[in-house]
């Protein structure tokens, strides 16, 4: 008799726990759907790797505009090369910065909600105050662009200058600084924006989409360079 009751209660506990898990997942799913529908503005960036000359004007401007301390950076231009025979050599440049994913792996793992997706701009940001520095988001970012800001001790990354230039009604610092106009910034939801026009007209790619990240940084592939197998 006693044993039966014990087992019954155990079963009840198990099912209660199961229900809790399922409801948790349900919440997660409903949250994801909400984000999808509510946003009417989604900022995106295009990096034209053909126009980029690797001068680092963007990363220097970023550091100044956002007060990024030395030793860490929100934006870097990675250089690959040289390819070809001297003197006809060339390099390939790729932008290393937050890809502003719609799949947002960093937001999904953040235990406190310090990493969040701003529904009015589609920008993924960090709430410095809420961040406790568990490093989970840094490990979860497939692009490995997050870092701990040595001053605030919070996770930090590119937010399209949401708190600095966008507030002043300007374009992100990197876009303004680029001498070759390799960067295009704008709203994906606006059919007449420059980003939409460029994306429609030019073949482009995004990095690591196979991980379900749906990034909002688009790249126009360098015509020159090595063919990789």
């Amino acid at each position: 008799m006693k044993k039966e009751r014990r087992q019954f209660i155990k079963g009840a506990c198990a099912s209660a726990f199961g229900v809790a898990c399922v409801s948790g997942l349900g919440i997660a799913k409903s949250n994801a759907h909400k984000d999808k529908n509510e946003t009417n503005c989604k900022y995106a960036l295009i990096h034209d790797e053909n126009k980029c000359i690797g001068c680092d004007a963007c990363s220097v401007a970023c550091r100044e505009a956002n007060d990024v301390p030395d030793g860490v950076s929100r934006l870097e231009i990675e250089r690959e090369g040289p390819f070809g025979e001297y003197p006809n050599q060339f390099y390939r440049f790729t932008r290393k910065s937050c890809q502003q994913c719609e799949g947002k792996p960093c937001v999904n793992v953040c235990p406190t909600g310090a990493a969040y997706h701003d529904p009015s701009t589609g920008i993924v940001s960090v709430d410095e105050w809420k961040c406790v520095g568990c490093l989970y988001c840094i490990a979860a970012c497939p692009y490995q662009i997050r870092f701990i800001n040595p001053v605030t001790k919070a996770a930090d990354k590119c937010d399209f200058c949401k708190e600095t230039r966008l507030k002043e009604g300007r374009q992100p610092a990197c876009v303004e600084a680029c001498p070759t106009k390799a960067l295009t910034f704008g709203d994906l939801k606006d059919p007449h924006s420059q980003v939409v026009e460029v994306l429609k007209a030019t073949p482009n790619y995004r990095s690591k989409t196979e991980l379900g990240t749906r990034p909002k940084v688009f790249r126009i592939a360098s015509q020159e360079g090595e063919i990789k197998l």
């Binding site: 000359i53 680092d56 106009k181």
Partner: peptide, 13 residues
């Protein structure tokens, strides 16, 4: 910054 300026002096579009 001067180095970048010298890049920009030719490459600016």
């Amino acid at each position: 910054s001067k180095r970048i300026a010298s890049c920009v002096s030719c490459h600016e579009s």
